[in-house]
C-alpha cells in the first residue's frame, strides 16, 4: 500500500540551521494494517506524518502509494489524492468555527465531485454515533464528540488510509479510548490506520509499533496481542 524509500527531510536549507527531521528512512505499510508511530516530540514523527499525508514533500527519496511514485506529483494532483485516499484526524480537531457538525463532515465532499453530499455526511456521522448532533454547532460539542466529528469528516470520502496525528492528545483517557475504539473498528472494516502518538498505552492498540528517534526508525515490531479498546471501555 505505502512504501517509503530512503526518505530524507531537511528543514532550513535556505540559510538558518539545518535540521534533519527524517534521515534515510525506509518503511513499508501493507493494506489493512493498523500501525502506531511513536516517538518523543522532535523525534521526527510529525514530519513522518506530514510526508505520509502528502502535506509535505521529502527532500530526497521516493514515496510509493499503491506502487505509484507520488513525491513528483503536482500540488493539485496531491490535493486530489489527499481528498480521495487519505482521511486526516488531528490532535486539535481542526473543525471550522461557527459551523455545524454536518457542515464540517461535508467539507471533503465539496472538493470531490460527489453527489448526495448531505446523505453521505449523515451516514458518516452515524458511523461515529453522532446522528443526533448533526445540526449542533461544533463549539457546543465536547472534545470527544468534536474528535468524532473529525473522524466522520475523515471517513466521508471512503479513503483507504486514516491518518491520526495524536488524535487522543487533547482528550481525557475515556474519550481517548472511545476514539481508539473507532479506529480499531475502522481497521476491522478494512481501512489502513496510521496512528501517530507519544503515548505507549495508546500505541499498544495497534498491530505494529514503529519507534522514531532523531529522524530514524529505531524499532519496528509486531504487537502480539493488541489491547482491545472496546473491552477496556466495558470495564470502566
Amino acid at each position: 500500500m505505502i512504501q517509503l524509500k530512503n526518505i530524507t527531510k531537511i528543514y532550513g536549507e535556505n540559510g538558518g540551521q539545518k535540521v534533519r527531521a527524517l534521515d534515510d528512512t525506509n518503511l513499508t505499510i501493507k493494506k489493512g494494517e493498523f500501525i502506531a508511530v511513536i516517538g518523543a516530540s522532535g523525534s521526527g514523527k510529525s514530519t513522518m506524518m506530514n510526508i505520509l499525508g502528502m502535506l509535505d514533500r521529502p527532500t530526497s527519496g521516493s514515496y510509493y502509494l499503491e506502487d505509484k511514485e507520488v513525491s513528483t506529483l503536482t500540488d493539485d494532483e496531491l490535493a486530489n489524492i489527499r481528498n480521495r485516499k487519505i482521511g486526516f484526524v488531528f490532535q486539535k480537531f481542526h473543525l471550522l468555527p461557527k459551523t455545524t457538525a454536518i457542515e464540517n463532515v461535508e467539507l471533503p465532499l465539496i472538493y470531490s465531485n460527489s453527489n448526495d453530499i448531505r446523505k453521505l455526511a449523515v451516514n458518516a456521522l452515524a458511523r461515529v454515533g453522532l446522528s443526533n448532533r448533526s445540526k449542533h454547532m461544533t463549539n457546543e460539542l465536547s472534545g470527544g464528540q468534536q474528535q468524532r466529528v473529525a473522524i466522520a469528516r475523515a471517513l466521508v470520502n471512503e479513503p483507504e488510509i486514516i491518518l491520526g496525528d495524536e488524535p487522543t492528545g487533547n482528550l481525557d483517557s475515556k474519550s481517548g479510548l472511545e476514539i481508539v475504539e473507532i479506529f480499531q473498528e475502522l481497521n476491522k472494516s478494512g481501512k489502513t490506520i496510521i496512528l501517530i502518538t507519544h503515548q505507549q498505552k495508546i500505541a499498544e492498540h495497534a498491530q505494529r509499533i514503529i519507534n522514531i528517534q532523531d529522524g530514524k526508525i529505531t524499532d519496528d515490531h509486531k504487537v502480539e496481542n493488541p489491547l482491545d479498546a472496546k473491552a477496556e471501555l466495558a470495564t470502566l
Partner: peptide, 16 residues
C-alpha cells in the same frame, strides 16, 4: 490560516 490549511489537507487545490 487553520481553516485554509485544513481545506488543503482535505483536498482543496490552490485554485479552490
Amino acid at each position: 490560516v487553520n481553516e485554509i490549511g485544513l481545506r488543503k489537507a482535505l483536498g482543496a487545490r490552490n485554485k479552490d
